[in-house]
Amino acid sequence: MKVGFELHVTPLTESKMYCDCPTKNAQPNLQVCPICTGQPGSKPMAPNETALRAGIKLAKALNCTLNESVSVMRKHYFYPDLPNNYQLTSEPFGENGSFNNVGITEIHFEEDPGQYDPKSGLVDLNRSGSPLLEVVTEPDIDSIEKARDFLEEFSALLGFLGISQKIKADTNVSINGGARVEVKNIGSISGALNAIQYEVNRQAKEGAVLETRHYDKDTMTTKPARLKETVADYRYMREPNLPRPRASLQAKNGSTTYSTT
């Protein structure tokens, strides 16, 4: 088996990625403003500095090569929890790292979408625009034990760096060189391990097609995603509302600033 992760880390910040809204819990749709609800005419503010700092720290700890500056891109797709129908996501600011004998492909920052409840059809935008750091690993993991080791060490690292321990682990699983299946909705290490085990068994029995599945923690199984989540083309475009060239992540003296030159 071959397993790789896309780890979404929520750094501890007081406010959201591109606006001043607080990130603490509240009644649905109270921590919102024109920016994080995507009101026509609103523009993103400078990316949250605390989140950028946390990202640099993490990239260094994962032995990544740091890129001095990156652009923020619009990633276009339609989903109920995404008011703009595009998500702001940065180019990788760290690349080619390794951690615990697993290759780190890249790390970038992005914004969380809102929360959509398919049962009620309601959307809560309190989370919309919250900062996320996404760490993508190579598919270097070939056993459940290795997966457990990696996730436990990664979690301990986050704790040590004081970034946060809130992780979501999108998990890619393939067996015998077959198609890669992406499993989403995993919120814990044991969840990830259960999902891997289930997928290995399922794929051995049913075969695998390139698809996205959702993990159900109650039944410890995976189900095909309700909505089509794999888009052929995100039409990536540099966000013109953020000045060129972009977030400067110069980490020489440990400071992270937003460059407007």
């Binding site: 609800t37 995507g38 026509p40 619009r74 276009h76 008011p83 703009n84 129908n85």
Partner: peptide, 13 residues
């Protein structure tokens, strides 16, 4: 413009 108009799909706006 196509990017800017993406949000007007009747969901929120």
């Amino acid at each position: 413009f196509a990017s800017a108009m993406q949000r007007f799909d009747g969901k929120f706006f």
